[in-house]
Simulated assay, not measured.
Amino acid sequence: MASSTRASASAISCGGVSLVFGLLLDGLAWSRIKEKFMVGITELKAFHQFNQKALEIHRRWDDLDAPELLPLAASLKESAQPLSDLGGEEWHRKKDMSRHLTCLVNYLKDDDKDKCWTDIKDLIYADLPALGYRLLTLADSRL
């Protein structure tokens, strides 16, 4: 009888371990997902720098030619990716921001500054405020 009790206890224990192990794995997966969308001061500083780059392009638009604006736009596009990823797939302006950055760089490469004026305006007046709000919301949910 004692051996059957041990066997049952072992089976329950093994089941319990696998259940606990499964929950731990789920917890680890959840913490990785949460980490991906965690926003703190570092990410908000990166957003601020991203915003400053966009504003610099906007301020210097009339003074610089397309080839002079291109490195600024390329740098802006490069710095956008990690922030866009933080916003998550469900962030409603993610595709718009990506399209505006791509058009900005491509039209400047083609030396056609006039075609991308609306893209820099849309970035500054629509995409960046929406991204800032999204990151603040994610940071607030962390607290």
Rank of each mutant, 00 (worst) to 15 (best):
S3V: 03
R6G: 08
R6H: 09
A7R: 08
A7G: 11
S8P: 04
A9C: 02
I12P: 00
V17Q: 00
V17F: 10
S18N: 03
L19M: 03
V20D: 06
V20C: 11
F21H: 03
G22K: 12
L23W: 01
L24C: 05
D26S: 15
G27C: 02
L28Y: 10
L28R: 00
S31D: 07
I33M: 01
I33L: 14
K34V: 03
K36V: 01
K36G: 13
M38Q: 00
V39Q: 10
G40V: 05
I41C: 00
I41G: 02
T42W: 07
E43R: 02
L44K: 11
A46G: 04
A46W: 01
F50N: 03
N51C: 09
Q52A: 15
K53F: 11
A54F: 15
H58T: 02
H58I: 02
R60Q: 06
W61M: 00
W61R: 02
E68Y: 01
L72Y: 01
L72Q: 02
S75D: 07
K77T: 00
K77R: 09
A80V: 00
Q81G: 05
P82L: 07
L83D: 09
D85C: 00
L86P: 06
G88N: 05
G88C: 09
E89W: 05
W91N: 14
S98M: 01
H100E: 09
C103P: 06
C103K: 13
C103G: 14
L104N: 04
L104G: 07
V105P: 09
N106G: 08
Y107G: 04
K109I: 02
K109L: 11
D111W: 01
D111Y: 01
D111A: 14
D112C: 06
K113V: 04
W117S: 12
T118D: 14
D119H: 11
D119R: 05
L123C: 01
I124R: 13
Y125I: 06
L128M: 14
L128F: 15
L128Q: 12
P129H: 13
L131I: 10
G132Q: 03
L135T: 13
L135Q: 08
L135D: 14
L135A: 12
T137E: 13
T137N: 13
T137V: 15
L138P: 06
A139C: 04
R142M: 03
L143I: 11
